[in-house]
Amino acid sequence: MNCTDFLAKLTDYFDGQIDPDLLAEVKQHLGTCHHCEVVVDTTRKTIDVYRGHQPYEFPEELSLRMREAVMERCRATGKLPEVEKRASKPVPH
């Protein structure tokens, strides 16, 4: 297996969807090719860093605002019954 063959199998290798014979060849190649070893290591870290650090915030305030807007649009279609009003704060006398 050369580097080009290895790259062609990289996605299956990461996703654990590689048959055992091919996996042995991939591992053998990785043991002898430092460049491919670096590519595997840094690609894995690339995936991990994106999974571990969501760059976009999703605050509760945004969630609530969007949900209420969607539900209002849905109710306006007449397909949903009017829900009872949420408990409002007692009006002071």
């Binding site: 990289l10 690609t43 994106y50």
Partner: peptide
């Protein structure tokens, strides 16, 4: 996916 991962890397 392969190319996206490699480019990001």
């Amino acid at each position: 996916l392969l190319r996206a991962r490699l480019q990001l890397r």
